[in-house]
Simulated assay, not measured.
Amino acid sequence: MRRLVIGGARSGKSRFAEQLVADAASVDYVATSEPRVDDPEWAERIAAHVARRPASWRTVETVDLAAVLGEGPGGGSAEPGAVILIDCLTVWLTRVMDACGCWEADAAEGLRCLGDRVDELVAALERTGRDVVLVTNEVGQGVVPATASGRLFRDQMGIVNARVAAVTDEVWWLVAGLPTRLKP
């Protein structure tokens, strides 16, 4: 079973995703973020996520999601048979866009690199035999960003979300902490 949990900021996505896997015998929590020593608020968010996780869950900190799903370089880095909870695709996209150079003035090569990484993720999701829950933000329903970089990110997040949703078995939309199943 592949599930996508999507919603706005602070809508309860992560908590709901954690509830979806709470009864699993083994969970690999894939954290796509990285600590930022210069950002205390971000550190508090990470600490809150860590504090909520059961001690039995294994944390995998990476942006190489294809590898975690068993399809990327180096094979799977997740525990065999474990349910995989990926939190979150929004932070993953930001880090991949940074690594690919998508913010450069001539970002054509960066966008090709990003497209390859999204293709790898989608292919790995399609092939994995694991139960997977992915968390992501819906960023396209608000104000149109004033900057080109903001619009680029919003557009790429929409593309990632649509591609991932197309290969999942369920899509859950969260608003004000209330889940609604969009794709049964």
Rank of each mutant, 00 (worst) to 15 (best):
L4R: 08
L4F: 09
L4V: 04
I6H: 08
I6D: 09
G7A: 04
G7H: 05
G8R: 04
G8Y: 09
A9Y: 12
A9E: 12
R10P: 13
S11M: 05
F16V: 06
V21K: 11
A22K: 11
A22G: 02
D23R: 12
D28V: 03
Y29M: 04
V30I: 11
T32Y: 08
S33T: 09
S33L: 09
R36K: 05
R36P: 00
D38K: 02
E41Y: 01
E44I: 11
I46P: 07
A48Y: 02
A48E: 08
V50Y: 11
V50C: 06
A55S: 11
W57V: 06
R58A: 09
T59W: 05
G70T: 02
G74K: 11
V83I: 04
L89C: 08
L93G: 03
T94G: 11
T94F: 14
D98V: 12
C102F: 02
C102L: 07
A105R: 12
R112W: 08
C113G: 01
G115S: 07
R117G: 00
V118R: 11
D119P: 14
E120A: 15
E120N: 14
L121W: 10
V122R: 07
A124L: 15
T128N: 12
V135L: 07
N137S: 13
N137W: 10
V139K: 03
G140L: 00
Q141L: 11
V143Y: 03
V143C: 05
V144L: 11
V144E: 01
A146V: 15
G150F: 04
M157V: 12
V164H: 03
V171R: 07
W173V: 10
W173D: 10
W173S: 13
L178S: 14
P179R: 08
P179T: 06
T180A: 09
L182G: 11
P184E: 15
P184A: 14
